[in-house]
Write a protein that binds this DNA or RNA. Structure first.
Lengths: 126, 126
DNA sequence: ACGGGTAACTTTCAAAATACAAGTCAGTTG
DNA sequence: CAACTGACTTGTATTTTGAAAGTTACCCGT
């Protein structure tokens, strides 16, 4: 266990209900889409920005910041002369896989005409 | 199958990704908390309003309206002289159970000091 | 050295969503 | 008839969002 489970729940303000707490972290329209893209092999700001739903760049920057604060993702400098970064899911982030899967399962049952999801791309270097 | 799975996905505007589609429906801070309360035995407007996180009444009214439009819940008049309503999950709504469970699972692993969740109360009359 | 291009953001500002309080409405109870 | 209840609705201030443009740091070709 790398990411210290049971770390301080500073983002948890509305109540101590586990559902409310997790929604305080990922309960919005964009956060889980960023996580989805990280699961599916997009890692740079540009790649995330160019994904299907065209997330506004200010929102993307904000969500990446929050996800990093929550230790759901990690930012890694992969080229230092023009500084370039790559984002990766931590163990805590990868553990959102089941959440993603359950959402996809519900979607496929109840929402028509959704796209086939590619398999999760586990990145080799993590 | 009562709720016609694969019904029109009118709420699905950002993209055809199943994750994006489902987030367009339940991707906000309050919707899943209302669903949680319905799972756990709260059914009237007043009961939902008095739950742990004290959702503002205008937001609650709005979310109930949307959830009903999506056929995730059903509104039932249970007393007609002073009109009183009860809200219930449909099959489509109850099928959000696994989503809720996966969220709770993640929460228990990564967020400290969350409350114990009571078992889901399956209401007898549904 | 200059102009153009790229990645990763940040800033600006209008529009939409949220939060809080108060008000409405139908009916019931004392 | 006055007070109360449940189920909302309305008004308004605050916050978040979204779209576009701007910034910074660097590379490349000429």
């Amino acid at each position: 266990m790398a990411q210290t489970p049971q770390s301080s729940n500073s983002a948890c303000h509305r109540s101590r209900c586990p559902v409310a707490c997790v929604l305080d972290i990922i309960g919005d329209k964009w956060t889980l889409l960023v996580v989805r893209d990280l699961f599916f092999g997009r890692h740079t700001f540009k790649e995330l920005q160019n994904s299907l739903e065209r997330i506004p760049t200010n929102i993307l920057a904000d969500r990446l910041k929050r996800l990093e604060q929550q230790q759901i993702i990690r930012r890694e400098l992969y080229q230092s002369r023009p500084k370039r970064y790559r984002y990766h899911l931590t163990e805590k982030g990868r553990d959102l896989g089941p959440v993603m899967q359950s959402l996809i399962g519900w979607s496929k049952k109840y929402i028509a005409d959704t796209l086939e999801v590619p398999g999760v791309r586990v990145d080799p270097g993590a």
